[in-house]
Amino acid sequence: MKLDVLQIHPDDNVGVAVRPLRAGTRVACGGTAFDLAQDVRLGAKLALRPLRAGECVVKYGEPIGTLTADVPLGGYVHTHNLESDYLRTWARGELLPAPAPPTAGARRPAYRPPR
């Protein structure tokens, strides 16, 4: 059988699509099986068990961020439901993050443009 989704490390709670897959595809990976709910691209991360908001996503056997929403078995994991524990992710079209508040001792600019 052709491999569709790869579990890179036995501790991983997501698998990776090794080719573009269509909605309805029956996927068997990491000791579980599910029908894909949507079309996904090559490289997409798919939950190998139901995951809860606040849980770490594990890939390569290491945490890659924290979920901001529940994800069902086979659900698609990406920027809409996963956040970095280190640095914010920026994507084209998204607004740049608001500047961080000045730290203690930092001087504000002398001139601020009118709104």
């Binding site: 956040e83 280190y86 640095l87 992710t89 084209r92 079209g93 740049l96």
Partner: peptide
């Protein structure tokens, strides 16, 4: 800098976070 070593195309290529890109 308010921006990791992470470009827009990384996310279009199904990388979600800095640490995921890092592990690769």
């Amino acid at each position: 800098m308010g921006h990791g070593s992470f470009a827009s195309g990384n996310a279009e290529g199904e990388l979600t976070t800095q640490e995921e890109k890092s592990l690769g």
